[in-house]
Design a protein around this nucleic acid. Structure first.
Length: 537
RNA sequence: GGCGAGUUGGCGGAGAGGUUACGCAGCGGAUUGCAAAUCCGUGAAGACCGGUUCGAUUCCGGUACUCGCCUCCA
C-alpha cells in the first residue's frame, strides 16, 4: 500500500494520512445549497474530492470508505426563491414549493455531477432530515454555556472556545478590528454566530425549545457529520471560501459539544475557480453553470480533465483554450486505447503521484508518458482510477476504427473509396473525399482502410465554445462573426441577450434538405465510379 | 482595514538545493499516393532586491504586482 500524504489546512503541513479505522475511512465534504443549478465553481470540490474518494477506495477497498456529502435544503436563499415563486402566482403552501424546488435541484445536481464522472457519495443527507439532531446539539451547547438564547435566537458564544480562529489563522480580536459585518444588537460579542433563528409564519420552521424556528447554516454539518461519522473522523473537505466562517464555526460547535472527540482530523480546502483570469460572478457576467457548458457541447469528461489538470490547492482558471486542449488530449487517448484493455495493476508511480497530496496534474503527466510509450493498458488503468476514459464518459467520442459514421450511405461511399485506392485510382477516391468533406463528413485514410465520420458535432462544439468565450468577455461582435462562420458550415448559432445558443447539431443537419440531396448525389457518383472501375453492380 | 494564496519558457502547468518536467503552439525531420492523423528530434524559463550555501528557479527576508476570503454568489 502506498502511503497517502495530505496537506492539512489545520496544521498547515503535509502529513502522512493514517485513518482512525482503516476498515472504515470517513470523509465529509460540504455540499451544495439546493436552490439553483450548480455553477462551474461548485463542480471543483466535487471533482477534487471524488478523485480523493476514488484513491481512498483504491487503497483501502471500495467497501471501506464512507463519503458523506450533504444537501443544504434549509436556507434563506431557498426561502427567497420559493417566495418569488409564490409571488409569481404559485398557490401551493410554502413547504410544498420548497420541497419541489429542492427535490428538483437535487435531481439536476445529480445529473450534472454524474456527467462529470463523479461517483455518488456513500451518503447524501438532507439537512431537513436532521433537524432533531441539530436541536439536541444546540440544547447541549446551551447546557454547557457555550451558547445562549436571546430574542428567540440561539447564539454560539465564540469566546467560550479558546481555539476559535485557529483553522483560518485569525484571532477574534483581529476579526472584530477588521470586521465588515453588521452586528446584530442582541449579540454578546460581534463574532457570535446564530445556531437557531425564529421563523415567522411565512417561513419554514420547526418546533424547538426556543419556539418555532429554523437552524443557522453551520450547525447542519456538525450535526450530520456527528450522526453519520461519529465524534472523530478522518477528512473534512470543502472550498477554501468555507474555511472562514463556516468551517471555523463547525469546529467550535463540534469541539464544544463533543469535547472528547477530535471532530475532523484532516482539513482539506480546494482553491477557487476563475474564468478567463477573473472570478466568476454574476456581476461580471462570466457566470455559468455546469449545465450551460454541457449544453454548449463541452463534454463532462473535458470539464473533469481541466479540473484535474491544476492542483486543487491552486486557483484554477477555466478557459476555452484549456477545454479545447483537454478535448484534443482525450480524443488522442481514447483513439489509442480503442482496442486496449485496462491493466489490472495500476503502475505504482501513478498511485504515488496521487498519494502525494492528490497531485492530479503529475498523474496526468504520467498518463501522457504511458501514452507516448504506447502502453494502452496502463493509460486506461490510470485514467480510470481518476475517473477519465471511462465508458460512461465516452458518449462524445465518435472516432474509432473503420467506418463509424452511423450512416450506411457514407459507409458504402467509403467502401468505393477503398476499392479505388487499392487499385491506385486516386483521382476517384479524392473526388469522393472532397465531396464528403464539403458536407461535413471527415475522412481519415491509412494504408489499409479509411474512416469517415461526421465533423459537425466537433465543429459545433468548437464554434460555440469560441462564441461563448467572446460573449463572456463582452466582445459580442466577435461572437456574431463566429455565428456567421457557423452558418456557412450549415450550423445555426443564434447570438441574443442570453448568449450564443440554439446550435444545430448533426441530427438537424441530416434533417435539412441539402444534406439528403447531396449525400444521394455522392452515393450516385460513387456507384458510377464503381461501374467505371469495372466492379459488377 | 484584517487574513491568505500566487508570480516559472509563446501559452498552460509541475516536481526537485546541483542532473530532460510534461502538454499545447513553434521549428526540423520521418512516414502514410495526397490530405488529416501519427511518430522522432529541438530552441526557449523561473517578477525584482538582498541573505544562507561550494552551488538556488527550489530555503529565508524584503519590494512590486496579481488573485481570493472576510459581503448574496463556492
Amino acid at each position: 500500500m502506498t502511503g497517502i500524504r495530505l496537506y492539512n489546512t489545520r496544521t498547515r503541513t503535509k502529513e502522512d494520512f493514517a485513518p482512525i479505522d482503516s476498515a472504515n475511512v470517513r470523509m465529509y465534504v460540504c455540499g451544495p445549497t439546493v436552490y439553483d443549478r450548480a455553477h462551474l465553481g461548485n463542480a471543483r470540490p466535487v471533482v477534487v474530492f471524488d478523485t480523493l474518494f476514488r484513491l481512498l477506495r483504491h487503497e483501502y477497498g471500495p467497501d471501506h470508505v464512507t463519503y458523506v456529502r450533504n444537501f443544504t435544503d434549509v436556507d434563506d436563499k431557498i426561502n427567497a426563491r420559493a417566495a418569488e415563486m409564490k409571488a409569481a402566482g404559485d398557490a401551493r403552501p410554502l413547504e410544498a414549493i420548497i420541497r419541489e424546488l429542492t427535490d428538483g435541484t437535487i435531481g439536476w445536481y445529480h445529473a450534472d455531477m454524474d456527467a462529470l464522472g463523479a461517483l455518488r457519495p456513500t451518503i447524501e443527507p438532507r439537512a431537513t432530515e436532521f433537524i432533531g439532531q441539530m436541536i439536541a446539539m444546540i440544547a447541549g451547547l446551551i447546557t454547557t454555556d457555550h451558547a445562549y438564547v436571546k430574542e428567540g435566537h440561539v447564539l454560539f458564544r465564540v469566546r467560550s472556545y479558546c481555539d476559535y480562529g485557529r483553522l483560518s489563522g485569525r484571532s477574534v480580536d483581529d476579526m472584530i478590528a477588521g470586521a465588515r459585518v453588521e452586528v446584530a444588537p442582541f449579540k454578546e460579542d460581534p463574532m457570535d454566530f446564530v445556531l437557531w433563528k425564529p421563523s415567522t409564519d411565512d417561513l419554514p420552521g420547526w418546533e424547538s425549545p426556543w419556539g418555532r424556528g429554523r437552524p443557522g447554516w453551520h450547525i447542519e454539518c456538525s450535526a450530520m457529520s456527528h450522526e453519520l461519522l461519529g465524534e472523530s473522523f478522518d477528512i473534512h473537505g470543502g472550498g477554501i471560501d468555507l474555511q472562514f466562517p463556516h468551517h471555523e464555526n463547525e469546529i467550535a460547535q463540534s469541539m464544544c459539544a463533543y469535547p472528547h472527540g477530535d471532530f475532523a482530523r484532516v482539513w482539506m480546502h480546494n482553491e477557487m475557480l476563475q474564468v478567463e483570469g477573473k472570478k466568476m460572478s454574476k456581476s461580471l457576467g462570466n457566470f455559468f453553470t455546469v449545465r450551460d457548458l454541457l449544453d454548449q457541447g463541452v463534454p463532462g469528461e473535458v470539464i473533469r480533465f481541466v479540473m484535474l489538470s491544476t492542483h486543487y490547492s491552486k486557483p484554477m482558471d477555466w478557459t476555452a483554450e484549456k477545454a479545447a486542449g483537454a478535448e484534443a488530449t482525450l480524443r488522442k487517448w481514447r483513439t489509442m486505447t480503442f482496442r486496449s484493455k485496462a491493466d489490472t495493476i495500476t503502475p505504482a508511480e501513478f498511485i504515488e503521484a496521487l498519494a502525494d497530496d492528490l497531485n492530479s496534474h503529475q498523474a496526468i503527466t504520467l498518463i501522457h508518458k504511458f501514452a507516448r510509450q504506447g502502453n494502452g493498458g496502463a493509460v486506461l488503468a490510470c485514467a480510470r482510477l481518476i475517473g477519465l476514459l471511462t465508458p460512461e464518459l465516452g458518449d462524445w467520442f465518435t472516432f474509432g476504427e473503420g467506418t463509424v459514421s452511423g450512416d450506411e450511405r457514407i459507409d458504402e461511399i467509403s467502401m468505393v473509396r477503398n476499392e479505388a485506392r487499392q487499385k491506385g485510382l486516386y483521382e476517384f477516391s479524392d473526388e469522393l473525399r472532397d465531396m464528403l468533406i464539403e458536407i461535413g463528413v471527415g475522412v481519415f485514410d491509412n494504408k489499409f482502410s479509411s474512416a469517415a465520420y461526421f465533423e459537425a458535432e466537433n465543429l459545433k462544439r468548437t464554434l460555440q465554445s469560441e462564441a461563448w468565450s467572446f460573449w463572456r468577455s463582452g466582445e459580442i461582435g466577435k461572437a456574431k462573426e463566429i455565428a456567421a462562420q457557423a452558418a456557412e458550415a450549415g450550423l445555426k448559432i443564434y447570438v441574443d441577450e442570453d448568449g450564443p445558443s440554439a446550435v444545430t447539431g448533426i441530427d438537424e443537419i441530416k434533417a435539412q434538405g441539402f444534406f439528403e440531396r447531396k449525400i444521394l448525389n455522392i452515393l450516385k457518383r460513387a456507384r458510377e465510379i464503381r461501374l467505371e472501375m469495372g466492379v459488377p453492380q
